[in-house]
Design a protein around this nucleic acid. Structure first.
Lengths: 338, 338
DNA sequence: AGTTTTTCATAAAACGTTTACATAATACTG
DNA sequence: CAGTATTATGTAAACGTTTTATGAAAAACT
């Protein structure tokens, strides 16, 4: 069984290969009659246009690569899922670029566009895996790339962000409203912009409420569940324990709740816990975790659309900021008396 | 700035393009001297070989597509992560094929190899998205594909499976050993092979222990967390409640534990719960969930290696079965007296 | 009928590689 | 040193498309 390419289809339908190609890509410019013939032949032969051939010719791979630290994180996998759905609608395939937090790997993935393996990049990271030193003409030539959630220092790049500061402010305010005064945080990785913004939001809320900042209540986590566990343990050792813990992601909140339970604390009666992200299972833990919802589907959809515009040389907003929602569930409650 | 291709590098280093290509792909067959020249030119020009060009010529995309129902499931994302790591080592990129449980999409992803967009398939599904009706010569020509975890009915295909039956048997036996007699299960999607095998394991363990089967204790779940919630609620309505629940995945176990807590049951004192998979956060819930560990990294690694063999026309084992481990944590305990 | 316009199809030239084959250069043999 | 084996390079033909000229045929005007 000889391999069937466009040539075979052309022969079968008695037209030139150019006509076959046109029938498939620009049906409207070929006459009804020949279109029919060609389509029949395509179907009969079971012709599948070779992607590499067309990619080579059009100089478009039809792929995008999403560079993300860890697919295993439920927040990330939620985003990826949303992206993929949207990418497919727009005719793109997604290459997975799980970096495992390794900048080297991020660079390798980013290079995919230089190699023509991908047309654009969706970047979830605060460090830029591409070179932005200007060339002799002072021009930086960026690949189509949109920076999502985590912001790189490089300004001149399209971004889709979440209002982390406001989100954190709302969470903190929620705790304050419940009467909490000693509110600890377990942060994410120190250098991430999400972390910095959330921290700012937390501090602003406290200041705003006239609560003195206490750096001892700022525990350094890393967005991973174990750090939620570790840091909570440390907090419990304090003589003047906090009455509430704001974790910068739900995963750490899960870890916190776990430690609290393990040590006989009731949540929220003895200690309130609030997370961030609203991952899928936040509502299925016990108690259901109060959190700040990030609009995962919207993030995925938006960043893919932004990238699409760049890919198609259409104008795209330089900066888009999405809003969060405070989701109050059962892990936050009034501050214990005394 | 003209685009730099192999031609420019050839010109720059004063050799033919063939030599450049050889220097890059088969350095050993080109003389030390010219190799030097070429490599210098490559570096100076910042040459990045175009993937589409080479793919077209070699008829290899260098991509594999992993077809999986839902990246958002922590078990799945764990696997994907493992696969990706291994794929990279072997020089392959991974295209994400999240089907959202839609067979249509699975077929589309599978077609990627017909279109030359991917070289092989890693399939996590019990229905086959490719056509296996024999041609005129009675031959089926399969793409390079390995079927993982979930088994399709089609025998003549390479598989990497987990011993689900034994895993389920061990879990059930563990409960039996703790004195439980009324052991409910919350199953996965009815048609999946994993589900059938786990069910078989459960039943065999019971029979083996001389415990009468009670179909009312078999609750139909779907591997999603909400179904753990729903089905557990139903179980609690029974006059003769079970004393233990075996959930066919950890997610459903989380749901079960949640419902139990919400309704005032202590786990494991009033009711034991055991899961399956050992997803990353199983140990961080409260109580930490006892479960049957699937060797996620090994699964990912093994199936990728198997696929690699197929891709390189090397002999590959038709069937590989990996073992599970019983992980006893805190959600299972002795059956309540009386 | 002759001219212009429109529509449709073709031939051929890319796209950027790799590689079979041919040739040139070098090393080895007796 | 001629003759042969070996090694290193170059030439040119693929790989499977899309698309730009280009031309032929058909349709629409004088």
């Amino acid at each position: 069984m000889a391999k069937i390419g466009i040539k075979q289809v052309a022969a079968l339908s008695g037209v030139s290969i150019a006509t076959v190609s046109r029938t498939l890509r620009n049906p409207e410019i070929v006459s009804e009659k020949t279109r029919q013939k060609v389509n029949d032949a395509v179907k009969k032969a079971g012709y599948k246009p070779n992607k590499m051939g067309s990619s080579l010719r059009t100089q478009e791979s039809g792929n995008i690569v999403v560079i993300i630290p860890d697919v295993t994180d439920p927040f990330n996998s939620g985003i990826i899922c949303a992206i993929e759905r949207e990418a497919q609608k727009l005719g793109y395939s997604v290459l997975l670029g799980d970096t495992q937090n390794d900048p080297k790997r991020a660079e390798q993935y980013a290079e995919m566009v230089e190699y023509g393996q991908a047309d654009g990049i969706l970047l979830f990271s605060y460090n830029l895996p591409i070179d932005v030193t200007p060339d002799e003409n002072g021009q930086v030539n960026l690949p189509p790339i949109v920076n999502v959630c985590e912001s790189t220092a490089y300004e001149n790049i399209h971004k889709v962000m979440v209002d982390d500061e406001e989100g954190a402010r709302k969470a903190t305010q929620h705790l304050i409203d419940l009467g909490h005064k000693r509110i600890a945080v377990i942060t994410g990785n120190e250098n991430t912009t999400t972390n910095q913004n959330r921290l700012a939001g937390y501090q602003k809320a406290l200041i705003n409420a006239g609560i003195e900042l206490d750096d001892r209540l700022i525990m350094q986590g890393n967005y991973q569940i174990d750090s939620g566990v570790e840091q909570t343990k440390k907090l419990l050792l304090f003589k003047d324990r906090p009455t509430a813990i704001f974790c910068f992601c739900d995963l750490m909140a899960m870890g916190a709740v776990k430690v609290l339970h393990d040590n006989g604390y009731a949540v929220p009666n003895d200690m309130s816990v609030i997370g961030f992200d609203d991952i899928k299972f936040a509502e299925f833990t016990y108690p259901a975790i109060s959190t700040v919802r990030q609009p995962v589907d919207e993030i995925g959809k938006t960043c893919m659309h932004q990238l699409y515009k760049l890919l198609k040389d259409k104008p795209a907003e330089q900066y888009i900021e999405l809003k969060t929602d405070l989701i109050v569930r059962d892990s936050t409650g009034p501050a214990p008396k005394g």
